[in-house]
Design a protein around this nucleic acid. Structure first.
Lengths: 203, 203
DNA sequence: GTCTATACTCTGATAGAC
DNA sequence: GTCTATCAGAGTATAGAC
């Protein structure tokens, strides 16, 4: 790596363009399935030019992934132990569903990575992610012990929020095919999931 | 394609071996990510020998996929309109969770396909799958109208069963990393999901 | 039916002109 | 900084011996 040098505006802009193109292609085809040609095409740059900004395909992929987990865990991090339990949990569900709607490519990239056994993210999952879940599971357990929400397995509760919200991003094609035209999956999901979690957590 | 000829036992066995190896490799690496070398290696056959039994990589992939949807939809198909609604639904959840536990490779292969926009299964999804869901959604709606289960969006109810059960196969790595050793995700999930759906569907 | 050898294409990465 | 040309390796598929 060369000594860190301040980047010009055009450099910053091109790097962003490439990372966005990489997200687009990696999220639909996985790492191996993606080609530099495709990424260059989406970015509107030549292949050698990609490799002027990033040292390798792997480098692009790593860069795309590196910021992903932070964005992904942010809503959970925001769940406030001092707040009202039901509001906090429903707020978390809504925030996670918003992520699925607004950042489906990120969701699919993450899903791709986990499906393949998390070869490039295992450390982050066993580290940051596990630590955060453990911390928040303790908050949930406290709420349950105080009788403010129903007693269920706190970690599986978090899993179920992930599964239900990410499904609408990762299986979008299937969801839309089954619902048919004239439906907004995310609007319907918001209502459905609010009902589901209210009933599950009512004491 | 040559005229259909009865296959010898060794042919049948080798074809099965190859399809199983293909399932193994395709489900973890996706179509593009998988190589014939990997499949040959897992199958314990040489690469040209693979192509003696199947005309191409695509052919292996298609053959693996072709039987997948049937297996996958079977539990839903079995949901009996004449049975007890809660029992039928909880039975479906359990059957789907069993599929996740016993056939995680099939689940991941399916997830891979949908994530990529279902390039090789779109027809089946818009056809058979949609038709079955529509049929069963009508059954659910009838149960709801009779006041035998709570009124919720029937299609999203099915989506939620899929999301929650498939999560334990597709995100297995993450689930186990977060839970840590000494947990059986599927045993815990069975209890958790039974509670969740009982509460959701209680009138 | 199965293998070795190989043809040919695709893809990641580099060289070097401008 | 960006491009054209090109190399080296991987990967699918085929030829042909046994």
């Amino acid at each position: 790596m060369p000594a860190a040098r301040p980047r010009t505006r055009i450099q910053t802009k091109n790097r962003e363009t490439i990372l966005d193109a990489g997200l687009e292609v990696f999220s639909t085809h996985g790492f191996r399935g993606a080609t530099l040609d495709q990424i260059a095409d989406v970015a509107g740059l030549s292949k050698p030019n990609l490799l002027y900004y990033f040292s390798s395909k792997e480098d692009i992929h790593t860069s795309v992934l590196s910021q992903l987990l932070d964005t992904w865990l942010d809503p959970l991090r925001r769940m406030n132990p001092e707040g009202n339990p039901i509001d906090e949990l429903l707020g978390y569900v809504r925030a996670k569903l918003d992520l699925s709607r607004d950042y489906p490519r990120e969701s699919r990239l993450f899903a791709n990575e986990i499906l393949q056994g998390a070869p490039r993210m295992r450390g982050a999952i066993e580290g940051d992610l596990k630590a955060l879940v453990t911390e928040k599971a303790a908050v949930l357990t406290a709420w349950m012990d105080q009788g403010r929400i129903a007693k269920v397995h706190p970690v599986h509760l978090i899993f179920s929020i992930w599964a239900l919200t990410q499904h609408y991003a990762d299986f979008d094609v299937q969801v839309r095919a089954v619902l048919g035209p004239g439906h907004d999956p995310f609007v319907e999901a918001e209502t459905y999931l609010e009902t589901l979690f209210k009933k599950l957590l009512a004491v």
